[in-house]
Structure formats: C-alpha cells, structure tokens
Design a protein around this nucleic acid. Structure first.
Lengths: 330, 330
DNA sequence: TTGAAAGCGCTAACAT
DNA sequence: ATGTTAGCGCTTTCAA
C-alpha cells in the first residue's frame, strides 16, 4: 500500500479511501490511484484488513482434517456461498496428535473475531464453545446442544436400512455398532433396535457386536457374528467402513454375498460403489448438510432470526448388490 | 491476550514470551501463565500473529472454487502436510464472475507475505505471478512456465486410452477434444494423434470434433460423430464429462455400448464408476499431485534445492465396461 | 526476570 | 479533498 501511495504521489489513507470507495476523494484522484493499483496488481492484505475491521466478508469452515466427509461438506458450503459476495476459508490445524482434543475451540479462537465473520464447525466433539460470532455445527458428535447444528437423521437412516432387510425376509439380522460415545452411533443402534421391535422381533444381544467405526474392531465383530453357531443372514453395519470389512470377512469365510449373507452399510462413501459386490447402504446428504449450514450461518451473520437452529436432514437408501432375500436352505 | 495478562497479573509481553517459549521468564511464571491460558482456553489470533511475524507455519491452497478436482488436491496436500507441524488453509475467492480472471494473483497477494508461508495454486490460468514466497502450481492450464509445477502426463494418458482401443481391434476411432486454449486438452489430442500414427493409422479429421470440456458442446460433437455416414466404432473423449455425455447420446441413438460403440474417457471422476455402463477411463493421480506439490513446497520453504521443479505424474488406465472389441458385423 | 514501547499493514476519526 | 494519527493483537527489541 505504501508502494501504491508513493507511486501515485498521495498519502496512504487516500489509497485506502479509494479502495474502500469512501467519500472525500476527487474523481480525478480516484482514477489515478485506481490505475496505479491495477498496474501494480495490488490487493489489500486480508490479514491486515481483518485486524482492523470487525467485518471481513469471509466465512470459515473449520475441520479437524481434510478427509472425504469434511471436504464434501466444504463443497456444499461453497455452493451455498456462491453469489453471496463472501469468500471462503477452510482451516485445519493439521491433525497432529496433540491438536486432537479441543481443536474446535482452538481453531475458533484463532480465526473468529478476525479473519472470519462466522464459522462452520465440521463434526466437532465439543460444542460448548463460545465465540464472538455465529457458529454452526455440522454433524456434531455429541448431538445438538448450544450450537446451531445440521445433522443427518441417523435414527431414520438406520431404520431404513434394517427395514429393507426385514422386507427382504430377513429375521436374523446382526449389527456391528459404532463408537459408543458418539451420538450418531447411538442413534444408528437405536434405529436398528426400533426397526426390529416394530417388526415384532426380539433383539438377540449376541448379534450386536461393537465395531467402534474402526476397521480392525469391525473385522473382529464380523468374525464373531459369522462364526456364531446360528449366524445372522444379514448384517447392518454402523458405517460403510465396517460394512466393507464385513464383505472381506465374508469372502474369507467363503460366504457368498448376497446369496448367503446380506450386508447394509451407512454413509455411502465413494468406495462403497466400487466394492465387490457394490454395497447397499444408507446415504447421508453431506453436501446438503454443508449448504444448509452455510445458509443458516449467512442468516445468522445478517442478524436474521433463524427458526429451526437444529436441523435434521433425511437420509436415503441406496440399493446396490450386497442384499438379497435369505436363502431358505441356509 | 490482555485478559490472560490481567488474570495472571503480568504484562502482555510476558504472556507472549511464555507462549513462544522465549528465554527470560522464570519457571514459576511460566507455570502460572500456562495455567491461566489453559483455563481461559486462549489461543493466539492467527491474524495478529501473521501481521507481526514473517513466518506463520501455515501453508495455503488457493483455488478458484471448491469442486471435485480441487478438493481432491486438497486432500493430497493435507496428507503430505501431516506431521510437518504446518497448518493448512484453503482459500477460494468465491467464484464470483468478476473474480474469474486473475484470481490467482489476487489471492496470492491477499494471503502471501502474511497468513501463509507458501502456497499451492490449483489449476491456475496465469502462471507468471510473483509472490514473496514459494508457490507451486498444480495442473497449470498453460503448461509449466516460471512456476514450479506438478501435472499429470496428459500425453501419455491419451496414448494409453487410445492404445487400449487399438489393441482391442478398433481402427476407426473418433475424438471429442477439450478446450483448445488449455495445454492439457492440447496434449490429450496430441496423444490421440500420436497413438494413431504409431499404429500406422491416418487421422480422419472428420472424426475429431471439438467438445470444449463442455457438456453441451460435447453432446453436439457426439451427435456429429455418431451420425457420420461411416461412424467410428470407438470414441476417445478428452474428459469424463464428455465421455458420459457420449454414453447418453449413444443410448438415445439406440447404440449398445460397448457392443456397437466403445467409449474411453479421461479423469476418472467418481460419476464415471457408476455410469451405465461404467466408464473405462484414464485416471489422473489427483491426490498424488497434491502430495507432490506439498512436498515440493515444504522443501522450497525450507530453502532446500529442488531438483525437478516441473514434475509430471504418470496416468493409468481404469478398465471398466464401456469398451470392447468392435463387432465385425457392424 | 520483567515491562514499556515500537511497529507489522491497514482503516477511521480527526485535523488541515 | 487530502493528510495525520491512533490503534487493531501480537512479537520483539530495549531499558529497568
């Protein structure tokens, strides 16, 4: 900015006024300074500007790490932001081990109040944060709390998946559960139990094994289920990763999917479509979640009243080739 | 920071010293201040710190928009950054129309020199930028120029795709080309021509139609090719989007793919795996490109000499169901 | 060992 | 219409 001022032969503040379109500058000066700016390819430093201004016109997406889920949310947010005049910054503290716990609060204090006018927090574990600006949580791990939030309907999704199996004629349906400290996992298990109950079926606790959203734990759980003296004819996994592992275990044991075993997952990650066989799964509308969160955030920033601060988006069943009616013979 | 200082009964500068582990503070004071910091959940503002320091320990990924390609690069960069101690910021000016041209320079001047120590520029059109820090371009549209860059081997990829068709026995192979102002598109066309030439085949210019990487143009091109009096038995499309459109046109015309027409795409976007039929295509190692770019950037920031500043990564053929030998009858 | 003061690039209130 | 000055939150001399 100094360069521009020197080059144009005016003061720094005049340049600032030109850039920000403030009154009190002659049209002539505006022209001249504008030309110099263009010639030098100057653009105000986002940082310096943020430090001085309360408003930055930037919204932030704070993530623990850039993985498939968070980047999908990011795409949704970007779509919703288009044409709003806002810029977008996605921030990850880098996923180092020490940064694990409390990354939400840390990231928030680092960016909010400067740099960003509001933030979307993706899959936070802690939601009792307070920041000096609007914050919307996407898929909070501990459920809707103080923070406005957008999440998928895990309960309904799980019922969808299990009901599909029930309709196919399965009655002995096992489940590989998720991380018990996460609300999403609890709800998926609850949906499983509710669907069975609604069908008048009793839950055989021996068929509910912990998978912890973890491939190795899930592998163990799948082995246990399939080596049960009276094994299930279908397995509902709390996430696709666990379902994919179940597919592998079934292959190891020489079980034909879907003829001898049906498998339903949850998430619909890209890998599921190209699995062998392609996985039938419950899809979360991740992009939509990002869009809704961004819409909500924009409204919050604009000071508008937001009616439903805890939104739940419907999930849907994606039918592929890992499910079929049970074979009477088996 | 004022709060912390007040709470701890010390000066602001002492707090700063504690945070940055500077010498000249008693162990006792360090302990006390650290406790207060933890209790208040304080974290230094990234912005204020950037403004003062030359070094920020943050690297930036600058994109025009958050779409599938750029987010895939982002994932690769994130992987490479893990454990390096760097934080990651991805920035998009928002994709508004006025920001279209020259977004690379603008973003760069906005963020570099403050906020980020170095940047990865994704698919820039302009590469003659100069910033006061290292910059690496991923898949620059105009080819390797001044900027260090990482790109896929478009030439080799195109040959791979066309050679697959040739090996299957096709001799009448059409092409839907890409945006002629983009190097990647030019190279893909060149690869097509070279592969045919290497097979001793002459290129029938009537079978090379412009698709511009645009669905509508591509649709038109596909229609022209397939309504040719002597239509090709196979089509190589410059990108998956065009190939997918070609599949649609073939279906409209009642052509069976791959029995009556083989189609090969380029990119391997997720949609291609679930197309009908699943598309055989040339895959770009997008994640790897992000990783390589990040590795290079890190080395550049560390002041290390980087031998190969223009890297080209090999592409590979993904065989799916849209190709087959030509039917002698047709 | 600690604190006071200057300054990073910018904007806004104020003075000319 | 233009320039001067203070200060955003932080780090870093430098002095106490």
């Amino acid at each position: 900015m100094q360069q521009v001022a020197a080059e144009a032969g005016v003061s720094i503040s005049t340049v600032s006024k030109v850039i920000n379109g403030r009154y009190g500058v002659s049209a002539e000066t505006v022209d001249h300074v504008t030309q110099v700016i263009d010639r030098l390819g100057y653009e105000a430093s986002l940082v310096a500007r943020s430090l001085r201004n309360r408003r930055t016109n930037v919204i932030g997406v704070l993530v623990m790490d850039f993985e498939p889920f968070s980047t999908e949310v990011l795409k949704g947010v970007a779509e919703a932001i288009h044409g709003s005049g806002y810029e977008l910054i996605a921030y990850s503290a880098g996923g180092h081990v020490e940064a694990q716990v409390g990354w939400e609060r840390r990231s928030l204090t680092r960016l909010m109040g400067s740099l960003v006018d509001g933030a979307v927090l993706v899959t936070p574990t802690v939601t009792d944060v307070q920041a000096d600006g609007p914050v919307v949580a996407v898929d909070p791990h501990t459920g809707p709390s103080g923070l406005p939030s957008v999440a998928a309907d895990n309960l309904q999704g799980a019922r969808l998946g299990v009901e599909h199996l029930l309709r196919s004629g399965h009655t002995r349906i096992g489940m590989i559960t998720g991380r018990s400290d996460l609300l999403s996992a609890q709800q998926r298990e609850q949906g499983y139990r509710e669907a069975l109950a609604a069908a008048g079926l009793r839950v055989d606790e021996a068929l509910v094994r912990p998978g912890g959203f973890d491939p190795e734990l899930a592998r163990e759980a799948a082995r246990e289920l399939l080596s049960h003296p009276e094994p299930p004819t279908a397995i509902f996994a709390a996430n696709d990763l666990s379902a994919l592992v179940t597919l592998e275990v079934a292959a190891e044991l020489g079980l034909d999917v879907p003829r001898q075993l049906s498998v339903v997952g949850f998430d619909n990650i890209p890998e599921s479509a190209v699995a062998d066989p392609p996985l039938t799964t419950v899809q979360q509308p991740i992009r939509r979640m990002g869009q809704e969160a961004a819409d909500m955030l924009l409204a919050l920033i604009a000071g508008e009243a937001v009616a439903d601060v805890h939104r739940t988006l419907a999930t849907s069943l994606v039918l592929r080739a890992s499910t079929a009616p049970p074979t009477p013979a088996s």
